[in-house]
Design a protein around this nucleic acid. Structure first.
Length: 199
DNA sequence: AACCAGGAGAGAG
DNA sequence: CTCTCTCATGGT
C-alpha cells in the first residue's frame, strides 16, 4: 500500500493536476488532441508542445479526419516548435492514418486495452510510455504509463533497482485502486514531484 | 553557453 | 541484452 500512500501524500501536497489538458469541445476531438500531444511531447518541454498544438488548432486540423487530409510538409511546419519536428510530423500522420481505419476514436478504443496496446506498439514512434499515455488519457483505459520521473522517484525510495518498464507498471497497477481517475492523477503528480526535484 | 524537457529507434559491442 | 547516438526547438 506504499504506492497508494504516496498518491495521497502528493495529492495533499500539490492538489489535483487535472491531466491531460485538452481544450477541444467534443470528446472525439479531445481524444485526438491527447494523442497528438502524447507524440509531440516526447523528450520535449510541454510549453513547446502547447505552441505546436495551438498551431494545429488555428489551422483547424486538430481533428482526426482533417489531420489525415493534411500534407506532410504543412504538418512539419506547424509542429516545429515541439522539436524533432520531421520525425514527429511523420509519426503522427502515420498514426492518424492507422486510427482513421476505425472511422472514429470511439470505435478504436472500444475493445480490450491489451489488444489496442499491442497494435499501438507496432507503429513507428510509439513506444510503451506513449502507447500507455494514449490508452489512459485518450482511451480511459486502466493502464499506468511509466516515465523517467516514476523510475527516478521509485528508485530513490528503493522500491525498485533497475528500469524494467513492465515491472514498474505492474507494481503500480497492482497497488493502486483500480480507478482511471486515480491513475491519471498519480501519473501527473509524479511528474510534478519530479520537476520539483524535492524527493 | 551548456543542459534539459511529460521518448523512440537504430546501431554497436 | 545494455550502452550510445540521433533527432531539434525553446527556456534557464
Amino acid at each position: 500500500m506504499k504506492i497508494h500512500d504516496l498518491h495521497l501524500e502528493l495529492l495533499s501536497k500539490y492538489g489535483k493536476q487535472e491531466w491531460w489538458p485538452a481544450k477541444s469541445k467534443s470528446k472525439e476531438d479531445r481524444r485526438f488532441e491527447v494523442i497528438a500531444g502524447a507524440v509531440l511531447t516526447q523528450a520535449t518541454n510541454w510549453k513547446n508542445v502547447e505552441h505546436a498544438l495551438e498551431n494545429l488548432r488555428s489551422e483547424k486540423i486538430l481533428n482526426l479526419r482533417k489531420f489525415v487530409g493534411t500534407p506532410l510538409p504543412k504538418i512539419e511546419k506547424l509542429v516545429r516548435p515541439s522539436g524533432f519536428y520531421k520525425q514527429k510530423a511523420g509519426r503522427l500522420l502515420n498514426l492518424s492514418k492507422h486510427l482513421s481505419k476505425y472511422n472514429n476514436l470511439e470505435r478504436f478504443f472500444s475493445r480490450p486495452a491489451e489488444d489496442i496496446r499491442k497494435e499501438l506498439l507496432e507503429l513507428n514512434g510509439i513506444g510503451k510510455e506513449t502507447a500507455d499515455s494514449i490508452l489512459l488519457y485518450a482511451g480511459d483505459k486502466l493502464i499506468f504509463p511509466v516515465d523517467a520521473y516514476t523510475f527516478r522517484i521509485f528508485r530513490k525510495k528503493r522500491w525498485i533497482e533497475k528500469f524494467d518498464y513492465e515491472r514498474i507498471r505492474e507494481l503500480v497497477e497492482d497497488q493502486l485502486p483500480k480507478d482511471v481517475e486515480v491513475y491519471k492523477e498519480f501519473h501527473a503528480l509524479l511528474v510534478q514531484l519530479g520537476k520539483d526535484g524535492d524527493y
